[in-house]
Design a protein around this nucleic acid. Structure first.
Length: 486
DNA sequence: TGAAATGTTGGGGCG
DNA sequence: ACGCCCCAACATTTC
């Protein structure tokens, strides 16, 4: 039992993207600080109403995850209150009606979320209610890892080195929420709206190998820990189960980043170290967004805003729908469309293709991924797209252009992944599957795939597109970085 | 967290 | 035996 008496009588924990009971910073602090703690989630219409589709796997993921969270809270003597409305008004209203003294939440670093939280904090403050927020979704936030000169890092490797140097056991220590569960208040039953009541329809979420909630997270983590030693070798091959598949759980907080980093550190070895490095990338991009919020609208490197992009709607549609004629790109796009997931290697390939082969602006691709990825996170998605378009911090150089055929030969050598998502090509021989347009008419007939009718011709020629992009990017580089004559 | 163009080397076929 | 050419195979440079 805590010796000191609680600061608050009644407190609320407002869950957002931290849908778990164990190792939850805000929940822990609330339970230690108040006699009675109510747990609340708001299906925020300010977010939901802006979603372009009424069929969204993420809404359903949240819905299932909340049910599980509620179960766990009930087991521990509490329960979850779920509301549907604008959080900015729902939270203060609920606080008032239940006579609460304080609201606890874990910090969210996205610009829209920051504005929302400011508005809520202001509304609460006018009633004398405290709004306390906590670091929970990253290991190091905002300015916790800085250069010796006190400036934020813009290059990953030195950031990572300092991140690793700064990391200590206590950063990874789980918050022992369970010990303080006695303060949980039971709100009574019947709070959970049905998906249809939220205005959303069921998706294929439960049919794809990515299960929601705390149980989904636990299964995925167990599975990955059996494979983590091979992560560094297997992670680039989309047909192989080599990556963690935990990103969606990090997105919604059905698992804690501290737990994952602790597992990686305890395991050690090349696989775990490589994976930990990916978790550091995640912190890195959160930190970039914090220090450079303009990346949402513009290139991190301003001179890259001068790159001339086309806007050919037919090419964009071909990319979105996975009919560019480049099998690996098409398989990647069909994977995201069918499942809401895309393998990381393919995110790079598909992004590079959109920007450097189709000459479309990176923000178009960024937006598409934002709408379709189950694990969509603003900072990482923006970072990835700016990396691919060479406009970001520590981005790949502009002249580094993925060859979609070479990438295919390297990372899907036997065409297994392509065949999984592009059934037209299922009988195309391995020798031809990476560039099926080179098949002779006889080969096309024999493999049941006539190029131009069963499967599209390449929408652009690789070599021509590459030259054009080098020229487009090269143009804006002229004069940039050259010292003026004195 | 590339790829293409260009340069170099060395083995083997051949006159 | 020797020089020449071809061209992988690898290395370096360039975008």
């Amino acid at each position: 039992m805590p010796a000191e008496s609680p600061r608050f009588n009644r407190a609320m924990v407002w869950f957002r993207r931290d849908l778990r009971f164990v190792d939850n910073a805000a929940l822990y602090h609330a339970l230690k600080s108040a006699r009675q703690v109510w747990c609340v989630f708001v299906f925020d219409t300010d977010i939901l109403d802006r979603l372009p589709s009424r069929s969204d796997r993420r809404v359903e993921f949240i819905w299932h995850s909340l049910r599980q969270l509620d179960d766990v809270l009930v087991e521990n003597g509490g329960g979850l209150m779920v509301r549907h409305g604008s959080a900015v008004s729902e939270i203060p209203a609920l606080v008032k009606s239940l006579g609460m003294d304080a609201v606890f939440a874990n910090r969210d670093y996205e610009p829209q979320a920051i504005r929302r939280d400011h508005a809520v904090a202001e509304a609460l403050a006018s009633g004398g209610i405290a709004f306390e927020t906590f670091k929970d979704q990253v290991i190091f936030e905002t300015d916790e890892v800085m250069t010796a000169g006190g400036t934020p890092y813009s290059v990953f490797t030195p950031y990572k080195n300092n991140w690793l140097k700064t990391l200590d056991d206590f950063h990874l220590k789980p918050y022992p929420v369970e010990k303080y569960a006695a303060a949980l208040a039971a709100p009574g039953s019947g709070g959970m709206p049905r998906l249809e009541e939220l205005g959303f329809e069921k998706t294929n979420l439960l049919d794809i190998p990515m299960q929601p909630g705390l149980t989904g997270a636990a299964v995925a983590l167990d599975d990955f820990l059996d494979r983590i030693d091979g992560y560094d070798r297997a992670r680039d091959y989309p047909a192989v189960k080599g990556t963690s598949y935990l990103s969606v759980h990090l997105r919604f907080g059905t698992i804690s980043i501290r737990r994952l980093a602790a597992e990686a550190r305890a395991r050690g070895g090349r696989g775990a170290e490589t994976w930990l490095s990916e978790l550091v990338w995640r912190d890195f991009y959160f930190q970039i967004l914090h220090h450079h919020p303009q990346v949402v609208e513009r290139a991190f490197k301003p001179e890259y805003d001068a790159v001339q992009f086309d806007n050919d709607p037919a090419l964009y549609a071909a990319w979105c729908e996975g009919r560019t004629g480049y099998p690996l790109v098409d398989a990647a796009m069909r994977q995201i469309n069918a499942t809401g997931f895309m393998h990381n290697r393919l995110r790079m390939v598909a992004a590079s293709f959109l920007v450097k082969h189709l000459n479309l602006h990176w923000s178009l691709g960024e937006k598409y991924f934002a709408q379709h990825l189950n694990d969509f996170d603003l900072s990482a998605n923006n970072g990835g797209w700016q990396w691919a378009s060479s406009s970001g911090c520590d981005a790949q150089p502009y002249f580094r252009i993925f060859n979609p055929v070479t990438q295919s030969e390297k990372f899907d050598a036997d065409g297994k992944f392509i065949r999984r998502y592009v059934p037209e090509l299922v009988n195309v021989p391995v020798k031809r599957i990476h560039a099926p347009w080179v098949m002779t008419p006889q080969e096309q007939l024999a493999s049941g795939c006539v190029i131009g009718s069963d499967y599209p011709l390449p929408v652009v020629d690789h070599d021509a597109a590459r030259r054009l992009t080098l020229e487009r990017y090269g143009r804006i580089r002229k004069g940039v970085g050259t010292k003026p004559e004195v």
